[in-house]
C-alpha cells in the first residue's frame, strides 16, 4: 500500500492530510536521487543544530564572565545539568565520558527544539538517526564493559542476589532486555518526535474545516506546548539512559 492509495482515500473524505510528508528527505538543490553525500534537508537542519549549539555554548560564553550574561548562564546551566546527571548516575569514574553524553544531549535537545519550528525538518524523528546514536551507545557500552572487566562483564546478566534456581531464567531475561535496549532507546526518541509532529499535522488538517477550526487551533497550541516539554524530556531520557548503560559497563556487579 503506497501513499497514493492513502491520499486518494483521504481526498475522498474531503480532508487532505499528509501527516508524514514533513518527514520526507529531500535534496536541497533539486535533483532526484539521494546519495549518501547529497546535501539534503537533513544536512540543512543538522547544520542549524550545530550553529545553535555553537551560538549557545561557544559564542554565549565568549565573555568568560564571573557574573554571567543570560546566554552564558543558560550554557552553564546546561553544562551543570548534564555534568550532575553523569556524576549522579554513572558515578565519579563516569565523568570522563561526560563530553560524549553532552554531545548527544545537546544534539538531541537542539534537533528536537528546532524541529518544533513550523516548516522545519526534525532530524531526530528519523529512525535512521536515532538508531545510529542508540547503536553507538550500545556498542560503546558493550565494548567498554568487556575492555574494563573482561569476561566479568557477563556477571551483569548473572544476578547473584537472586535464588540459584531462578538465576538462569533471570539471565535469559536480562540478556534479552540488554539486546532490546538499543531498539527501545532509538524508537522511543524517534517515535515521540514523529508522533508529536504527526499529531500536530493532523490537527492542522482539521483546522481547514471552518466548524472545528477554533478547537483544532486550540489543540495545536496545547500539543505544541506538550511537544516542547517532550522535546526536552526525551533528550533528558536519552542522556540519562546512556548514563545508566554506562554505569552498567563501569560497575557490572549488582
Amino acid at each position: 500500500m503506497g501513499t497514493d492509495d492513502v491520499a486518494t482515500a483521504e481526498d475522498e473524505g474531503g480532508l487532505v492530510f499528509h501527516p508524514m510528508d514533513q518527514f520526507i528527505v529531500k535534496p536541497l538543490f533539486g535533483g532526484d536521487t539521494v546519495n549518501w553525500y547529497t546535501p539534503t534537508n537533513v544536512t540543512l537542519w543538522m547544520f542549524f543544530t550545530v550553529v545553535a549549539i555553537t551560538l549557545l555554548l561557544v559564542a554565549g560564553t565568549r565573555g568568560r564572565a564571573i557574573v554571567p550574561s543570560r546566554v552564558q548562564s543558560v550554557a552553564e546551566l546546561a553544562y551543570g545539568f548534564v555534568y550532575k546527571m553523569v556524576e549522579d548516575v554513572s558515578g565519579k569514574d563516569g565523568v570522563k565520558y561526560f563530553p560524549y553524553i553532552m554531545t548527544l544531549f545537546m544534539f538531541i535537545v537542539f534537533a528536537n527544539m528546532l524541529g518544533l519550528i513550523p516548516m522545519s525538518f526534525t532530524t531526530t524523528s528519523h529512525i535512521a538517526v536515532t538508531a545510529v546514536m542508540a547503536m553507538a551507545v550500545f556498542l560503546t557500552v558493550t565494548i567498554l564493559g568487556f575492555v574494563l572487566h573482561g569476561v566479568g562483564f557477563l556477571k551483569l546478566f548473572w544476578i547473584s542476589s537472586a535464588p540459584l534456581p531462578l538465576r538462569p531464567i533471570l539471565a535469559v531475561i536480562e540478556v534479552i532486555s540488554y539486546f532490546v535496549r538499543p531498539v527501545s532507546h532509538s524508537i522511543r526518541l524517534a517515535g515521540n518526535m514523529m508522533a508529536g509532529h504527526a499529531v500536530i499535522k493532523v490537527f492542522a488538517a482539521f483546522a481547514a474545516v471552518a466548524l472545528i477550526s477554533p478547537l483544532s487551533i486550540l489543540a495545536i497550541t496545547a500539543i505544541y506546548a506538550l511537544e516542547t516539554l517532550v522535546s526536552f524530556i526525551q533528550a533528558y531520557v536519552f542522556a540519562i539512559l546512556t548514563c545508566v548503560y554506562l554505569k552498567d559497563a563501569l560497575h557490572p556487579h549488582h
Binding site: S184, I187, R188, G191, I233, V237, I240, V244
Partner: peptide, 10 residues
C-alpha cells in the same frame, strides 16, 4: 522517575 516514565512510555 523519569527512567520509569521512559520505559513505560516506550
Amino acid at each position: 522517575m523519569f527512567i520509569g516514565i521512559a520505559f513505560s512510555e516506550a
